[in-house]
Nucleic acid binder design. Structure first.
Lengths: 152, 152
DNA sequence: GTTATTTCCTTAACATGTTAATTGTTGCGA
DNA sequence: TCGCAACAATTAACATGTTAAGGAAATAAC
């Protein structure tokens, strides 16, 4: 049953119990070991996300890539240009609609994924171990409920 | 009972079920309405966080402020300078230890909090309503488990 | 007391987040 | 076909995230 928002108190929660701050801290806790792993390769966590998506789904247009890797278009423009210069991805224009473009991972980029995958998997397993399998799945489900974009 | 990490699979989860990406999307979903609210005042979400912490705990040194508002020192240096120019906070040196400094919210800054508090509270209430009170508390607890800094 | 170390804070450099304005294409309707 | 709305992508401008280096003040070691 839906609560009546008009009856909700108009005081803010303590910052120690704030959802936005809790999300930031959790993200920092999760990304810290991943960033540490990536620092040896010279790529950022966002570039890692792009590689992950491209490796999983293959060649795709920029809009889809931005959506799947949770990046805004301006960020992706810079990141893609950077990664293209480093040889991790290739960019090709759509001949049918020259506004659009496709991005694909290269062998060089795939090697980064392959080299880091075992350690990344161990990091993920560590968090599953910390929370427990059930809590881990519960957390993913609850987080998905906060992602309004996924409800369309 | 603790799982044996050496037995964990060495394959990465689908990006659709990735914890870092889920955290990013949840954060975006939560912050979107808050950012929309703040856009009218001209302050950013980080500046809002600083004001929230200062309003709740009062005058404090920079290190504590950075910790409570989950900001890195270099970011806080810029943000504090920016907010001081706009008259939202004041910075004073510690006479006993001239390396340290204290930051305090001004009346002008407090007014921002007061003006936005009701709407911010409604936004928070909306998310509690979306998840349900129990799930909301569960989520905060699970997120806290991922914040390694809080376990010291 | 002088030097080395530590601590607090700032600055620098580069990458990204965010919003708005701009450019280049496509497709559509007068 | 001309003009215009819609779309994809970029660029611009400013703020923040992140790491490393620098500077100033306090503290410890000698």
């Amino acid at each position: 049953m839906r609560h009546d928002l008009l009856l909700m108190p108009k005081t803010l929660p303590s910052t120690a119990r704030s959802l936005p701050i809790a999300l930031i801290r959790a993200r920092e806790g999760v990304m810290s070991p991943i960033r540490e792993m990536l620092s040896e390769t010279g790529i950022t966590e966002q570039q890692w996300r792009v590689l992950r998506v491209l490796a999983e789904y293959g060649r795709m247009d920029t809009k889809t890539l931005a959506d799947r890797s949770s990046l805004l278009f301006p960020s992706l423009t810079r990141i893609a240009a950077n990664m293209r210069e480093k040889g991790y991805v290739t960019q090709t224009r759509d001949h049918k609609d020259r506004r659009r473009q496709f991005i694909e991972i290269t062998q060089h980029g795939q090697k980064i994924i392959d080299d880091c995958a075992p350690q990344a998997a161990r990091i993920v397993a560590g968090f599953k171990d910390t929370l427990g399998e059930d809590n881990y799945e519960t957390l993913l489900d609850l987080l998905a409920m906060l992602d309004l974009g996924s409800q369309d």
